[in-house]
Write a protein that binds this DNA or RNA. Structure first.
Length: 454
RNA sequence: GGCGACGUGGCCGAAUGGCUCAGGCAAGGGCCUGCAAAGCCCUCUAUCCGGGUUCGAUUCCCGGCGUCGCCUCCA
């Protein structure tokens, strides 16, 4: 069984399932107001890896990840550009899925949109007012965090300590709040802003109310795992939990948070980073699988640098795995047989808080031994290793390419190259190879014939 | 000011109270090859500093230095 670090208890502990055989997972999704950045890529890849791994062990994963399609940033951009806010959210969401598809990230089983759950949010806020956990002010409804037992569970700080420092930071909505730590559940609308009706006046839900309603609505109380970026621990997740707890509901059983994508100085990602402007740029210029492999070679709770150097190194490592897949296929040993011991070793590493780096070390080692087996013409051994490597890679969403896409004219040139070699006309053969290489192809001339790939 | 994380070889990056401290990238040598490439074999280099606990610490504790995160919208 998978053991995961739990932010609430600060321990690696077994992920206990509410319903045996099924994992209920909620991942905080994007606010759609701009192109996805590298950090979104890490987030979605980390949880895609988790999900695929769980599924590979036979579990059913109910994976809910929302689209936040109403939020201050969306409104700001709409106003700034003089466009309808829906135009922005629709466009940005389309771009989001485009990037997800490029990275081969599985669509969540449910992708609730905040705007579809406003009625439920209003109902929940009403309940919070009714039990005096929330109160009405001139500019909206606020949650009274002092009323919540155990507030600070994820922040691991007492409220007083959280509020005592911070230097010159401003307290949002200070003039209306009873306590500086209180947060907005409902914001009354200003002219020209999107709004929904409520018993207290037209307005829009606060961000923290969106996720708690969507997660509880789709997954129900006491769902297994709530996940997101490190920054969401506090206040976002803390505040989601506060609302559920105030209503007497049991919220997530386990909390998972991943570390950021950072720049060369170890600082959190700003707008553009490294040599990539955003996620679309990365998937356009590199093999998107190499970003997945880069993350697999580190730990999800460690910060990671994502730039052309690090992704490039992963791309070359990936090329080695592809080569093994290709050689195995050429040797006719690309079957489905797996080595149970390898799978067990792999799972042991994965089950230990997703030690993907060590798990991948097992895969690389298997690929190396597989290549050696092919060289030694030990095809039985090669078949088991090839099948295992394929299966283990697939378990973390990495699809190896056993066949390269090569256009007919290039293949024709390769055939000509082989004819020249057969005729021992090496001058012509070398010229043809140089031509192909000049066009960006990797050319391998072997006894068995020439292979071409990118 | 409060809370927390991190500091491993040329680079990235796991693990670990002792047994030769993964793996990837890069580098060097070799095998193979018409030559390359790919593959395989071999080699190379590390646990920030100072104390402490211990038979023994990179690992645990304390201190220092350095870096970063959260406390405000944020994956």
């Amino acid at each position: 069984m998978l053991k995961l670090y739990d932010t609430a208890t600060r321990m690696v502990r077994p992920l206990e399932l509410r319903e045996p055989g099924t994992v209920s997972l909620y991942v905080c999704g994007p606010t759609v107001y701009g192109p996805p950045h590298l950090g979104h890529g890490k987030s979605t890849l980390v949880y895609d890896i988790l999900r695929r791994y769980l599924e590979s062990t036979g579990l059913v994963v109910r994976h809910v990840s929302n689209i936040t399609d109403i939020e201050d940033k969306i409104i700001e951009r709409a106003e700034r550009e003089g466009r309808p806010w829906q135009e922005i959210t629709t466009k940005c969401e389309a771009v989001w899925w485009q990037a997800m598809d490029a990275m081969d990230v599985l669509r969540p089983t449910d992708t609730p949109h905040a705007t579809d759950y406003v009625d439920e949010m209003v109902a929940m806020i009403g309940d919070l007012i009714a039990n005096e956990s929330a109160y009405l002010t001139d500019d909206g409804i606020y949650m009274s965090v002092r009323s919540v037992e155990g507030y600070g569970l994820l922040a691991h700080q007492r409220l007083e300590d959280m509020l005592s420092g911070g230097g010159d930071r401003e307290v949002v909505g200070a003039e209306n709040k009873r306590d500086p730590a209180d947060f907005a559940l409902w914001k009354f609308t200003k002219p020209g802003e999107p709004s929904w009706p409520s018993p207290w006046g037209d307005g829009r839900p606060g961000w923290h109310s969106e996720c708690v309603v969507m997660s509880l609505s789709l997954l129900g109380e006491n769902f297994d795992l709530h996940a997101g970026g490190n920054d969401l621990k506090f206040p976002h997740h803390e505040n989601e939990r506060a609302q559920a707890v105030a209503l007497g509901k049991v919220f997530a059983n386990h909390w998972m948070h991943h570390a950021f994508v950072v720049d060369a100085e170890g600082e959190k990602l700003s707008k553009s980073l490294g040599n990539f402007t955003n996620l679309l740029d990365l998937v356009d210029t590199m093999d998107p699988r190499s970003y997945r492999l880069l993350l697999l070679q580190s730990h999800y709770r460690s910060p990671v640098q994502v730039n052309t150097d690090t992704v490039g190194a992963a791309e070359r490592a990936l090329a080695g795995l592809d080569t093994f897949a290709r050689r195995a296929s050429a040797a006719g040993v690309s079957g489905d047989i797996v080595d149970d011991e390898l799978v067990a070793a792999f799972r042991e590493r994965m089950d230990d808080d997703l030690d993907t780096a060590s798990a991948m070390a097992i895969v690389f080692d298997a690929a190396r031994r597989g290549n050696a087996a092919i060289d030694a013409a030990d095809l039985d051994q090669a078949a088991v290793l090839a099948g295992s490597v394929h299966a283990l890679c697939a378990a973390v969403g990495l699809k190896l390419k056993a066949v390269a896409d090569v256009p007919a004219d290039v293949l024709a040139k390769a055939a000509a190259l082989d004819q020249a070699r057969a005729a021992r006309d090496f001058a012509v053969a070398d010229a043809l190879r140089a031509e192909l290489q000049a066009d960006g192809w990797l050319v391998e001339t072997t006894k068995a014939g020439t292979t071409i790939r990118r």
